[in-house]
């Protein structure tokens, strides 16, 4: 599972970075989205990979063994990170459309160079 997750993060990061450096605004947005997926998976991985382990301890806190539980903090962090990157990406999408309308091109610099 570790290999699968790290490969997934690696592929997402690589394609996200490639798209981020493309000259079209839509590609840049897709790149940022892919990068944020990669980062979210990475945060989950930072809390150690566990399967079949609940993150919240039940009512009998005295007898519970913390080693049997997953770390709940990274999951909370990921939730926050997802919400924030979703909102900022949505805002960027609006700016993209405004830029397209004002400059008449979808190039990131607002003008189409010599190409």
């Amino acid at each position: 599972m570790e290999l699968l997750l790290s490969l997934a993060i690696g592929v997402l990061t690589a394609s996200g970075l490639w798209l981020l450096f493309r000259p079209r605004t839509f590609q840049v947005i897709l790149g940022l989205s892919l990068l944020s997926y990669a980062v979210n998976l990475f945060i989950v991985a930072a809390g150690r990979l566990r399967s079949d382990a609940p993150p919240i301890i039940g009512k009998d806190t005295a007898s519970a063994d913390p080693a049997l539980y997953a770390d709940p903090l990274p999951q909370a962090l990921v939730l926050t990170a997802i919400v924030i990157s979703f909102a900022t990406t949505a805002l960027l999408l609006v700016v993209l459309l405004a830029s397209r309308g004002l400059t008449g091109t979808d190039h990131v610099d607002g003008e189409d160079g010599e190409a």
Binding site: T88, S99, L102, D109, G110
Partner: peptide, 11 residues
């Protein structure tokens, strides 16, 4: 146009 760059680099 400037804010497009600004938002991208900050994200």
């Amino acid at each position: 146009s400037a804010s497009l760059h600004y938002i991208t680099i900050n994200i």
